[in-house]
Write a protein that binds this DNA or RNA. Structure first.
Length: 480
RNA sequence: CGAGGUGUAGCGCAGUUUGGUAGCGCGCUUGCUUCGGGAGCAAGAAGUCGCAGGUUCAAAUCCUGUCACCUCGACCA
């Protein structure tokens, strides 16, 4: 392909190297994932974007059920008195809560918060539902939207209203709650790495970065192509903090009144932002096959010629029956060339071009989106060929993202090194554990602590910031 | 919330300095020819110039106010 053609691909999308932020905006709008809404800070998720969300939901929900959780639905409005019960929690969320103050023409006696998260609502209900240790554990999840009055917003990454799931569980013992907290982080990592092909770093948040009201917060952190971190999922262990505030007690095995041990965990449509910023390239999206709403798009070439459409439909049926998510682009209003670019922009992993010449040879031209290579494939045993190809693309995207990330993680032992490392990626450092050092690092470099990995193999003895005795291995990065 | 920027056809923009018939590209409609990397020709449809005041014979253009959005900072899944 010549230079001229190469240029055409990119004429509508700002190159990543020029302005990553603008590239992101161009891609999400042009691939028709979302559009801006007439409401400040809100996005409209369009069919293609929502289809990706539905795939994420299916994969996550399947795992939630497999680990013994059930779905429920809680109301969107939370009375102010409920929200005020857990002091640290209120303080954390108060600045970004939206309120309903009027119903019809009447001013409400008590303001109602539009949920920023539902810990308080779950707690209110759990306190009603729990009586005995025999009622435990209760492991509920809900898929819903929440609202946070954010000051600056970006589609998928931070919007005033966003779709997510929030799991809330209560347990008999601290050990069980901790086990749940870590198990769900594993589930998230499994979804991120094996479905979304996004490598993540899992670990515990510092006191400064933990969730308001939690005893311990864990996260998985992904690196975007601009080297910035994106928190892609979190799990929290609340201990008995909320149980004490909401009086969630049960009669224990030895007849004593005890508080439950509680957890919560969530992932959101932000994961879609992570997919875009992890895998996207100059032509647009590159969707991992396991999450792509369309895995294979069939583009007829010279569709007016006899037999072309029929062959496309035949291949469509074969592949659909074999379990693939397939689409035939039978639009007669645009040229094949337009369709090629269109589906590349939309990130479909594999494109099969079928024209008269292919039919004559019992083959199709297969284009793979990850490498943009094109080669003929036989129409015989196409299901096996496609299975292998999609698996290869899935693995390829993960490997590429992992290699990119690993290259940009630098082990640092001085502030100079840390400052330099967070310009392009993550800094892996030893830390004394003092919030003063986190504050200083934030102030000097704009980077925040991401998390403390479970593997705490030391890379030094002294704190990267103050030089005192180091307590923890931790990652620092600029974050979304 | 601070600093900057932008609002003109569905989208992207020119026109504003120097007031004087509302423009361009893409898209859209209809027809014909095309179809292996963003097709061509022809004929069409479409805009209270963000909103509200003011100045003027005359305002997209000048003045005042206001709203929305974007970018960068401070705060956050």
């Amino acid at each position: 392909m010549g230079k001229q053609d190469e240029k055409k691909f990119v004429e509508h999308i700002t190159p990543r190297s020029e302005d990553f932020s603008q590239w992101y905006t161009d891609v999400i709008l042009q691939s028709e994932l979302v559009d801006y809404a007439p409401v400040r800070g809100c996005m409209v998720v369009r069919p293609y974007g929502y289809a990706i969300w539905e795939r994420i939901q299916q994969e996550a929900d399947r795992r939630f059920k497999a680990t013994g959780h059930q779905n429920v639905y809680m109301p969107m409005l939370i009375p102010e008195s409920l929200l005020l019960k857990e002091a640290e929690h209120v303080e954390g969320f108060a600045p970004e809560v939206a309120w309903v103050t009027q119903g019809g023409n009447e001013k409400l006696q008590e303001r109602l918060a539009i949920r920023p998260t539902s810990e308080t609502m779950f707690c209110a209900m759990y306190s009603k539902w729990v009586g005995s240790w025999r009622d435990l554990p209760m492991k509920y999840n809900q898929w819903c939207s929440v609202m946070r009055w954010e000051k600056s917003t970006r589609p998928f990454l931070r919007t005033a209203e966003f779709l997510w799931q929030e799991g809330h569980t209560i347990h008999e013992t601290p050990e069980e709650a901790q086990e749940e907290t870590l198990q769900m982080l594993d589930v998230y990592q499994d979804v991120a790495e094996n479905e979304l092909a996004i490598p993540v770093l899992c670990g515990r948040k510092s006191e400064k970065e933990k969730f308001a009201g939690a005893v311990a917060t864990y996260s998985m952190e992904a690196m975007m192509q601009d080297g910035k971190a994106l928190q892609a999922g979190t799990t929290h262990n609340f201990g008995t903090n909320f149980a004490e505030a909401f009086n969630i007690q049960f009669l224990s095995r030895d007849g004593k009144l005890e508080y439950v041990h509680e957890t919560s965990w969530g992932v959101s449509t932000r994961l879609i932002g992570a997919i875009i910023m992890t895998h996207g390239d100059e032509r647009g999206l590159r969707l991992p096959p396991r999450i792509a709403p369309i895995q294979i798009v069939i583009v007829p070439v010279a569709a007016h010629k006899g037999g072309v459409i029929e062959k496309c439909d035949e291949v469509f049926k074969t592949l659909t029956d074999a379990g693939f998510r397939v689409k035939v682009d039978d639009r007669d209003t645009v040229s094949p060339g337009f369709k090629f670019n269109d589906w590349e922009l939309k990130g479909v992993p594999v494109r099969l071009e079928i024209g008269p010449r292919d039919i004559a040879n019992n083959q199709a031209m297969a284009f793979r989106r990850d490498t943009c290579e094109k080669e003929p494939v036989s129409l015989e045993s196409l299901d096996k060929t496609m299975t292998a190809l999609l698996d290869d693309i899935q693995q390829g995207l993960f490997d590429q993202a992992a290699a990119f990330r690993d290259e940009r993680i630098q082990t640092v032992s001085t502030m100079e090194e840390l400052t330099q490392a967070v310009q392009t990626g993550f800094a892996k450092a030893m830390w004394c554990g003092d919030v003063a050092c986190e504050d200083k690092i934030k102030q000097e470099t704009n980077a925040t602590s991401r998390n403390m990995p479970f593997d705490q193999t030391a890379v030094g003895d002294t704190c990267v910031c103050c030089g005192k005795k180091a307590e923890k291995l931790i990652y620092f990065a600029k974050a979304y």
